[in-house]
Design a protein around this nucleic acid. Structure first.
Lengths: 130, 130
DNA sequence: CGAGCAATACGGTCAAGACGTAATCCCTGG
DNA sequence: CCAGGGATTACGTCTTGACCGTATTGCTCG
């Protein structure tokens, strides 16, 4: 679940309108709409404000939100992003593997093309997961 | 524990330098220093990036963090809670005002009933927001 | 087909997230 | 005590995007 979905869920659960949230938080209606459609991200301050309005801690608000697979493609090492885009090879690589692979580097150097990444993946997988 | 303290803790735990984190994340050394001293807050994107660098989910990174101003209704001063419950007077008081008001005290003494709170609120509002 | 309210599109602004460079701190060795 | 160099912080700047106001569309009633 994305943060945007979470915001909308919370509001719908309570049967509130954007207007109600706006009055409870001091944020504008259009901005809340943007948040609930994922067009913008809240600052931590705003996150805290919203959590307060919904009577939750920031942690509880964020608990169902999945940040894990949301690493932005631009932040991925070159080649790894391409591997993930591969409909055959990339499909089997789970988010935790993405995190693990993305951390591989030696003095700033990393594998460069998707073939290298894939071979490393296979090797590591055999070692780590049998 | 603040988010800043949490960042520094994680880095020290691993025996890393700012430079190491910078290389793992693509963020600048001065900015990481700012984060660890609480001089700035990360965006959610940056939070994700840092969590990834430390091999944690965003949730695990934030788990020990207490967000400033997180305040359960029960912890509000007597009278202020009642004011907020008032469907008419309480409706207009935004969370940032709640934070501001809840901090008012003189040698442990505070306004006691909701009428006093409301008058202080109106006074401050005129001064601070025109 | 309106009327009226809820939500979205859109453009603008300005705070602050993030960076580069330069200064400072802090070691360790000589 | 000084020199040198790596780690951290101070400082100034820029640019992004969080957030807002107004205008528009969409919905749900008669």
């Amino acid at each position: 679940m994305t943060l945007a979905e979470r915001f909308r869920e919370l509001r719908k659960e309570r049967g509130w309108r954007l207007k109600d949230v706006a009055e409870a938080t001091g944020l504008s209606i259009p901005y809340l709409s943007d948040l609930e459609r994922g067009r913008t991200n809240p600052s931590l301050d705003t996150l805290r404000t919203l959590a307060g309005a919904y009577g939750l801690s920031v942690h509880d608000l964020m608990a169902p939100v999945d940040f894990y697979g949301e690493r932005t493609p631009a932040a991925l090492p070159r080649g790894l992003a391409e591997l993930l885009d591969d409909p055959v090879l990339g499909a089997e690589i789970t988010p935790d593997w993405v995190e693990a692979l993305a951390r591989i580097e030696l003095r700033g150097r990393r594998p460069e093309n998707k073939r290298d990444w894939y071979e490393i993946y296979l090797h590591l997988k055999r070692v780590l997961e049998g």
